[in-house]
Amino acid sequence: MISVEKLSLSDRVKACDQNIVSDMGGEKVMLSIQNGNYYNLGSIGGRIWEVIGNFATVAEVVDLLLEEYDVDRTECEQQVLDFLDHMRKEGLVLVDGEAASADQA
């Protein structure tokens, strides 16, 4: 797993291309070609995944989710940061300015 500093709201993130994603009953399930693991992103995690198909700041992701979901901003920010941090550690998302994880091998 990748060990790095925690993300902040100003970080720009993007979904890694080396994944196969499928919708299953409203939830997104993903296979990482890089590590061979399967992941369940759930429904909201799947929505986040769609939003970061192109580079977006974490704050932009949160703003969009606040428009769609009934949630407090502080709670949303913290939970989205935790979720993206976990995905980053699994090598599933890229952070702008960092080398792609595949290039580190």
């Binding site: 399930v29 399967y38 992941y39 992103l41 759930g42 909201i44 979901y69 009934d70 949303c76 699994e90």
Partner: peptide, 18 residues
């Protein structure tokens, strides 16, 4: 004016499947 109801929030979790 009709406004679209917001969806219920649930903490996003990354579940690593076995």
């Amino acid at each position: 004016m009709h406004t679209q109801a917001k969806k219920a929030w649930k903490q996003p979790q990354l579940e690593v499947l076995d």
